[in-house]
């Protein structure tokens, strides 16, 4: 290892970088905004997808019974349903149990002590063996006596997934535009550096520096812009996760915020990689255009 050479190279990169700090900050800021949006978009999409998967996996049909259903009649209904080969299990949930479960689920989020009487009907929770049959099973249950209403998550899940798909497309469009903006700003920054260093570049060419050697400090400058922007963005995203998400969870108690299930390290690496890639590509194109070497 020739440390003198490495030090000289790094000092050249640093000289480039600090020559036009205002412009570097602009570039870094643009990258940061882009990455923050990309990050929150990826995070939301993954979270929604996870919720959808989660619900889909345990496709359940909630069968709400009429007020007049006696426990005996309910049990015989449950037994009849259990005999259906498409049905995996049937659970009888009397209204008292239903209320207790709801209180448990909403504990600390909503003050359920205000409920003086039980608004819930008796219910059966039916699980099907195959999610594809859920429509047919639900329809046949709906036709049975004592059944007031049938609800199952399938429709909601489909809507959720469709929403996430649409959000995904819009988000992707915005991110692509922002990435382009960031790339243009980085390439402009590097053009300014090339201009500021045209004497050095002319001399490098004159004394026989290779094309790669002349380009390398500029590529590193782009890389630095991209990485610094991504690092700033990661900081902001982490701040949002710590400060904002708990508040969001309180505000929307019925949506399960499964933050833990999103792979945050992979996401962080993806975002850093995106920043670096944008920087390098923008720098490479810019150097190719403005540095005829």
């Amino acid at each position: 290892m020739d440390w003198g050479r490495i030090r000289f190279f790094l000092s050249e990169v640093w000289r480039n970088f600090t020559r036009n700090l205002a412009m570097q900050f602009t570039a870094i800021g643009t990258v940061a905004v882009t990455i923050v949006l990309l990050g929150s978009f990826l995070f939301t999409r993954e979270a929604i997808g996870k919720i959808g998967d989660d619900v889909l996996k345990r496709i359940e049909i909630s069968v709400f019974l009429t007020e007049g259903a006696t426990p005996a009649a309910t049990r015989s209904l449950a037994a009849r349903l259990s005999a259906d080969p498409r049905i995996l299990s049937v659970e009888y949930i009397p209204k008292a149990v239903g209320l207790r479960r709801m209180r448990e689920r909403l504990r600390g989020q909503i003050d359920t002590s205000l409920l003086t009487q039980n608004p819930l009907p008796d219910a059966l929770r039916v699980r099907v063996r195959n999610p594809d049959t859920v429509h047919a099973v639900a329809a046949s249950i709906r036709a049975l006596p004592l059944v007031a209403n049938v609800e199952y998550a399938h429709d909601a899940v489909e809507k959720l997934l469709k929403l996430s798909d649409v959000l995904g497309r819009i988000g992707l469009g915005i991110v692509v535009l922002l990435v382009l903006t960031a790339a243009i700003i980085i390439s402009n920054t590097i053009r300014l550096t090339v201009f500021a260093r045209r004497r050095e570049i002319a001399i490098m060419q004159l004394v026989g520096a290779s094309r790669l050697y002349i380009r390398m400090p500029f590529i590193c400058e782009g890389l630095l812009d991209g990485l610094a922007g991504a690092a700033v963005a990661l900081g902001l995203l982490e701040l949002a996760r710590v400060q904002l998400l708990p508040k969001l969870a309180v505000a929307l108690p019925f949506i399960p915020m499964r933050v833990g299930t999103v792979d945050q390290l992979a996401l962080a690496l993806e975002l850093l990689g995106t920043g670096a890639a944008v920087g390098i590509v923008a720098a490479w194109l810019s150097v190719g255009r403005y540095l005829r070497v």
Partner: peptide, 14 residues
């Protein structure tokens, strides 16, 4: 030294 450094010379040669 610049002329040597940018052509990838070893520090000892510089």
């Amino acid at each position: 030294a610049f002329a040597l450094q940018v052509t990838g010379a070893q520090t000892k040669d510089v």
